[in-house]
Design a protein around this nucleic acid. Structure first.
Lengths: 233, 233
DNA sequence: ACCTGAACACCGTTCAAGT
DNA sequence: ACCTGAACACCGTTCAAGT
């Protein structure tokens, strides 16, 4: 039943290994898209590869390293903004691009959030890009670092949130029928929570793209103000 | 070895149950402080309470509900800002207060991030407060909702990040000796990552309070700009 | 060098059975 | 009504052993 890999007798006489880190990461990415973050386990990954879980540990140190490699792979398709644009526009483009990349794979934002500081080339390039834009814009070194992590964390947090409950999608979701949650909010005591009750409709039907743009704009405007008040003295 | 609870013979003749939801949540909070988020399991919680894990399921639906109750408990000590202050100051105070409350228990931010939308009174009060401040400031319903979740998510995300690697504290941490990570960054190819390398020192020694203030200010300034440009037409 | 068998020390949850 | 015994279906990781 097992198909042997094509053996090449010549310069290299060794059989090419059935497994390598690249194949593992690729399979993990596929499994992530199929079963999500919680479905991605060392054991299920091994099963998908037709091997035993223990074999994985010859190629990766553990699950943490695997998630790091996965984070790198997810960030690979990141494009770069046109550096001749004004810095605000560059940040906007970069933010949109990062979100696009995170939305390309199921639970990708959770992978990025769970893995630590960037150590691979793809994520480092992203960090370099945002810091470079901020320094060129005129931010101080300390402010550039703070702003950079703020922008990065905003996107991962946002996408994390927007995709958190998409597997728990309510099937019977008529577009305009008030959701159960909406009715729940409206049933709250208005004396205690007047604003919450008043905003019930708006709290539920928030468009993700719209909401992302909002936060994105708030951050850029805030940074603009910061730059203006600092460089002016 | 077991100490029987004091029985009252009279109106109520039943023995008071050894367990109730309140005691469970209290014990869970203690366990969280001792062993952190990953150490808080249904089994270890049961052990701490001197019972079997299965018993917990009589009092709570499952772990998800327990985390929700825990989130409520964590938010209980939230104070409210002086409503006569300008809205920017009110938001600042509220943000600081929320961060303070999250830092009061180990991994509290992770609990808040993992539990879903607020459904208990304590977290609802927080939501009501921020929405009320924003509406009073003059934001549109939609903007108030967007800004509210942005502010809330900023704090939880920030505290999540600032506490993420505090259990992995490097023991041999001389204050001014360059950290291992710092040296790692400085060893990167400056041609590929000029800004990252140049900012190595600033990337490592970021003061959490300072950084929180920075992001907090950026958000408030961004909202101010938004309010100014929208109410003017 | 690379992979497996088998175990270790865990998880959350269910459910018939006990009191 | 409340709690337990015992199981189910999982986890990540290690390590001696195989090839």
């Amino acid at each position: 039943m097992k198909i042997q890999p094509f053996k090449v007798y010549g310069q290299k006489r060794q059989v090419e290994p059935a497994l390598d880190q690249k194949k593992i990461v690729q399979a993990a990415l596929g499994l992530l898209d199929e079963d999500g973050f919680d479905g991605l386990t060392m054991r299920s990954l091994a099963k998908k590869l037709g091997i035993k879980a223990a074999s994985l540990y010859w190629h990766v140190r553990g699950k943490e390293e695997l998630l790091g490699l996965l984070a790198e792979e997810i960030c690979a398709p990141m494009g770069v903004p046109d550096r001749t644009l004004p810095w605000q526009k560059q940040l906007e483009v970069l933010g949109n691009e990062y979100r696009r990349v995170l939305l390309a794979h199921r639970d990708a934002a959770r992978i990025l959030a769970s893995s630590g500081a960037p150590s691979g080339p793809n994520r480092l390039r992203l960090t370099e890009m945002v810091l470079s834009i901020l320094l060129d814009a005129g931010f101080s070194p300390q402010d550039a670092v703070y702003a950079g992590s703020l922008l990065n964390e905003y996107v991962t947090m946002f996408v994390s949130g927007e995709t958190q409950y998409e597997n728990t999608e309510t099937k019977s979701d008529r577009k305009d029928s008030p959701s159960e949650a909406q009715n729940w909010i409206k049933a709250l005591p208005p004396t205690d929570y007047p604003s919450v009750v008043a905003l019930a409709d708006h709290l539920m039907k928030s468009d993700a793209d719209d909401r992302f743009r909002f936060g994105s704009e708030i951050l850029r405007n805030g940074l603009e103000t910061r730059l203006a008040t600092r460089s002016g003295r």
